[in-house]
């Protein structure tokens, strides 16, 4: 059995691939969304910013910000899940990925439940790929602020997977 891969090398590969993926989406940067990673688990973070407010009287996050945050989280999670095996097996390197960005899944439909007012503070979201076929995928996303158990929004979306020719 070959010796285990040095931990720095594993982290470098995963983090640089994730950064390449997230940095490739301009709208995620516009909203200020960043991703934290533990192994293959991703948590999206939406740091509070005054421009994200919809109702300045309450004040509350704009419903469109919440929908955008959930959809960005779903697409990044789905892409990450799609690339993970190739990255871990070495068939795809972060350098190859940066040179030729992977095509992203396309949203077919997206339904958001607004459960509570989005407060003027940081938000967090995690997505779960419930079904991922060759062509279609179904993803569920949950978002919270102060308490993980008190969701302020959730969403389900369906996506068309990019056709990946020679991998």
């Amino acid at each position: 059995m070959p010796p285990p891969e040095p931990v720095q090398q594993v982290k470098y590969r995963r983090d640089s691939a994730l950064n390449t993926l997230v940095d490739s989406v301009p709208y995620a940067g516009f909203l200020g969304i960043v991703f934290e990673r533990h192994g293959d688990e991703l948590t999206a973070v939406l740091p509070y910013d005054a421009k994200l407010i919809g109702n300045p009287v309450l004040p509350a996050l704009h419903g469109g910000v919440i929908a955008s945050f959930l959809e960005v989280t779903a697409i990044i999670e789905l892409s990450w899940a799609m690339l993970w095996d190739e990255l871990e097996s070495g068939r795809l390197t972060p350098e190859q990925m940066a040179a030729s960005l992977p095509r992203l899944p396309k949203t077919i439909d997206f339904t958001v439940d607004y459960l509570r007012t989005g407060l003027p503070r940081d938000g967090y979201a995690r997505a779960r790929v419930n079904r991922s076929g060759r062509r279609y995928a179904s993803v569920h996303v949950e978002a919270w602020q102060d308490n993980r158990a008190r969701l302020f929004a959730q969403a389900t979306g369906h996506f068309l997977m990019p056709q990946r020719g020679n991998g």
Partner: peptide
């Protein structure tokens, strides 16, 4: 700044949702 997929230049679905 609102683009979702730089390969196509198409606006992100989230911006259309907003």
């Amino acid at each position: 700044r609102f683009v979702g997929d730089p390969a196509t230049g198409v606006i992100h679905g989230g911006a259309v949702s907003a």
